[in-house]
Simulated scan of single mutants.
Amino acid sequence: MPGNNYNCNPSTPRSRLERLLRERELRRSNRFLHPIEDGNRQAELLGNDNFLTEGENFGLSSEEDFPEGVAAAKAFADGCEWKEGRTPKQRLLVVANRLPVSAVRKGEDSWQLEMSVGGLVSALLGVKEFDARWIGWAGVNVPDSVGQKALTKALAEKRCIPVFLDEEIVHQYYNGYCNNILWPLFHYLGLPQEDRLATTRSFQSQFDAYKKANQMFADVVHKHYLDGDVVWCHDYHLMFLPKCLKEHNNKMKVGWFLHTPFPSSEIHRTLPSRSELLRSVLAADLVG
């Protein structure tokens, strides 16, 4: 009888909605008989962007229903896209005798930091192409673990990493070999007289302290080094450092830069252990 809804063949859906519901029932009934075909059909339906038209979303929520969730999802997607398209900066480990900050202890676990003034500090402030970390001595003696931990945490906020040198090492390495031996020699003043070395004992003890201090710097670099980092060593305080770094990892990219004049051969030949120092410097990939 025409116009009677009950006369239609139930196996022949009249609308797309009925057809989709019918297909879902058929998939359920044939799941175990034709698992591969059923999976292909689902993939076909999911791959068809138009298999649900407007008005046939079966109650699925729209963007208007959850604006906060949609906004968060878009922000997340934008963030992922930005990260994928971003070129990460080259990491640079700047290693110098002193950090670019001065530390003053205010309590057992409290430190005050102030930026230092210097040519190297001023020059590196303009370097924006690298993700730089600065490794060096904080200029203070910190014998206790509580103070070292607190200072390390405070310096990390300035992207600085401390090397902790005790008073004896500083006395022999910095005041002795660096300031009483290398600095005068590199400025054509010659080696100091023995009486000027009285407060720093002997030349050999100073040189031993110099090598020990350089190894302590190297140990800190090794601890924070990541594959692909560039290590930039600075000045006559760390002439032994390139060798220490290369002996631990010969694939490490190491540069060494001198901030003072280099003496002529006539002056340099008066320096004991000059060959050992030069060979250590030449272990670097780049010398400037």
Score class of each variant (00 low, 15 high):
W232M: 14
R27T: 02
A154E: 03
A198M: 06
D208V: 09
T199N: 15
A284R: 07
E157Y: 06
D235Q: 09
D49L: 11
D208T: 08
C8E: 12
K251A: 07
K106Y: 15
S265M: 00
S145Q: 04
N5P: 14
R41Y: 15
N214W: 05
G139H: 07
R27L: 14
S110P: 03
V95E: 10
S264D: 07
P192C: 13
P162R: 11
F66P: 02
H268P: 03
E266S: 10
G59I: 03
G79A: 12
V140S: 00
F240E: 11
E194S: 15
L93H: 04
K246Y: 06
V95K: 10
E18A: 10
E157S: 11
D166T: 04
R28Q: 06
M239Y: 09
D78S: 15
V104S: 01
G85W: 01
S102T: 15
S264E: 04
C233S: 08
S202V: 02
I161E: 11
G85Y: 00
V163C: 08
R279P: 03
R16V: 12
E54V: 14
I135N: 13
Q206L: 06
M1H: 13
N57W: 00
E108K: 15
L278R: 02
N9W: 04
F186I: 11
A73E: 00
R27V: 08
Q112A: 09
P13H: 10
A71F: 03
V117D: 01
R279Q: 11
G59R: 10
S145I: 06
G288C: 01
L191V: 09
V221I: 05
D65C: 06
M216T: 11
C160L: 01
N97S: 03
M216H: 14
N50C: 01
M1W: 08
L277H: 00
N57S: 00
S145P: 02
K89G: 07
G39A: 15
E56N: 12
V254F: 04
G69V: 00
S110K: 04
P88M: 10
L45T: 15
D109P: 00
F164I: 02
G59Y: 13
G190Y: 14
Q193D: 13
C8F: 07
D235S: 09
C80R: 12
K89D: 11
Y6L: 14
S110L: 04
A283P: 04
R41P: 02
H248T: 13
Y188W: 14
R27M: 13
